[in-house]
Write a protein that binds this DNA or RNA. Structure first.
Lengths: 192, 192, 192, 192
DNA sequence: TATGAATGAGCATTCATTCAT
DNA sequence: GATGAATGAATGCTCATTCAT
């Protein structure tokens, strides 16, 4: 089937968003240039502005893309314990197969200080993540899988903080082996 | 005593570094401008370049400043458990009294992807932090203060990852209450 | 009767010219954009370029439109004195009902410095206007309606200069009441 | 005497304003480019922006320059009739020696439709011009130099409208001889 | 030491124009 | 006839850096 004009146009939009996403991951907001993004897709800068009126609009689209990529990690099946394990495994895999995502999330998080709209979006994602973890940790607490006396909500917050610390800040800034250590220890403390 | 030329010169260097540090915290690398830094100190941009040949050189000095500020958190006295408690309390206080430091550390961490020299410096700090925690957690493990079977080195890595996640990424990107929850849970899990 | 393709095509051309005319009046050459003109008619910019190969061609058409609108003021009936009075009244009315025309004429006049072809067209209009006034003022001079010793050609030139000064330069640049004063005084000096 | 830095800086500012003034006269607002202005002075565009933060600021300075040039025509000595004659002669000379001024005034007048601040400035100039003419025409009316029954204020308004029509719209848009005719006739009607 | 003045290279954005469909 | 998509060449403005004084 020949793609309709709209479909082709949609594809180019996505290509541009993806190119911007890649550049944001590799160069940061500091080094994000519309010309580079356009060039990566093989089009003129003016074409980029045909699809996105401003750089800001492009960035918003990248934010949406990153958030949806991140959200995809939260879908799983099986028992709560299995899902939790799958979540950790999924993140590990994601970091290996698409390290850009975490770099982008880190950039977005840092930028949220100066961009209230972005902050709101990130907080929404944060809430969704917490709610999702809570659904898994609640039953685990009843089963006794979670050490007695631990509040599932607090545990979820701890898990999130740790995973952020591990993944949203680049491994280059740490001793490489320490990431694996921390993750293992976190899993152990959750009994998974 | 009248400050010698060198002493006065040193003071101006420090003023410039501090101004750059503040701007980096508030505007990020993305918004760091030499003119603003010079302006904050009340001197001409050209003067800034007299003290720091390039923007890069200024940034290096800021890195040094931030690292030494951070290292100062690691000095403490008392029993290991007391020191650990003091470390957490110190970080909490630091975040309140000098929130810029963590913002700067986050910016530096993200930048380390594109700046091997910076990455090396951050890794050194990381190692020092880990060693310092290990000195506190080792005895704790022997005392049984740490739950049985937990490897002090892994626990230290977990602590570091969590604190990074909590402090080096800005609170704007999270649900505000979740930070305190995570920190409490971390302390609880360490038995402090 | 269904309009033939050519008739429909002609109508669209006119719509575009009129839209360009309106934009020229309100935004000046400085702010005249082909996209805006096309948008005002509800068509794509490419469609505009189907009818007018270049922006210049569109402008030429606007010039023609403006000149013909202006020429329409010169048709009148009655005695010379009546016609002269009607001319003044017509201009007054025109300024009220179609202020764009004078704005456009002003823009064109200013542009004529850099556009010899336009200058030639305007001079033609100028000559026609002068000839027409002369036809009215000549008899008036013989009747003694014009003060003795006044050369009708010179008087016509004076009338034209004054009306240009009053109408082709926007009222915003003057004290508003001064326009009516000048016009009244001009009429009085002509004995009408 | 060696010019102080400020004096040299002032000179460059003036050079830039003058270059902008010339470009505005020759190319209009439509064709006014900061790069051209800078180039005419032999400096980089960035230098232009060192002196004038925005193009608008430069334009404001040009407005001030043009207004003061224009105001200089209003200073004269002698009897009212002599001054009036000198005013006309001065304008004639100005048009010959500095035709740019009138072109610029025309551009400013046209722009005043879209620039309220500019409109206010032009109206001030208009008021000053009217007041000045009134001071000359009032005595003339008493002397009987002005035909009986003519209101000096109205006559002044007529003079201004005519001179605007003659000078602020470029001669290219008219039959060249008509300008001189109109001016002569105006002078004759004023008895000078 | 300090600065006013200057700049090259670059940046996001604009705009008339083109062309395949 | 009409349009969505694309672009080359600007355009106003920025910024780290240089240099004569």
């Amino acid at each position: 089937m020949i793609p309709t004009p709209t479909a082709r146009s949609d594809r180019k939009r996505k290509e541009l968003v993806d190119a911007a996403y890649q550049r944001l991951a590799s160069a940061g907001f500091e080094g994000l240039r519309t010309r580079d993004v356009a060039g990566a897709v093989g089009v003129n800068v003016a074409t980029l502005h045909y699809y996105f009126p401003t750089k800001e609009a492009l960035i918003r689209a990248v934010v949406g893309h990153a958030m949806s990529r991140f959200a995809s990690t939260l879908s799983a099946e099986g028992t709560p314990a299995q899902q939790l394990r799958a979540h950790f495994a999924g993140l590990r895999r994601l970091v290996r197969t698409e390290p850009q995502l975490m770099a982008v999330m880190g950039e977005l998080a840092l930028r949220s200080t100066r961009d209230p709209a972005l902050a709101a979006i990130l907080r929404q994602g944060d809430d969704a993540w917490h709610a999702w973890l809570l659904r898994l940790l609640g039953p685990a607490a009843k089963d006794g899988a979670l050490p007695a006396g631990r509040n599932p909500s607090d545990v979820a917050a701890l898990v999130m903080a740790t995973l952020r610390g591990l993944y949203m800040l680049p491994p280059e800034s740490r001793n490489p082996k320490r990431g694996e250590q921390a993750l293992r220890e976190l899993e152990r403390s959750l009994g998974i």
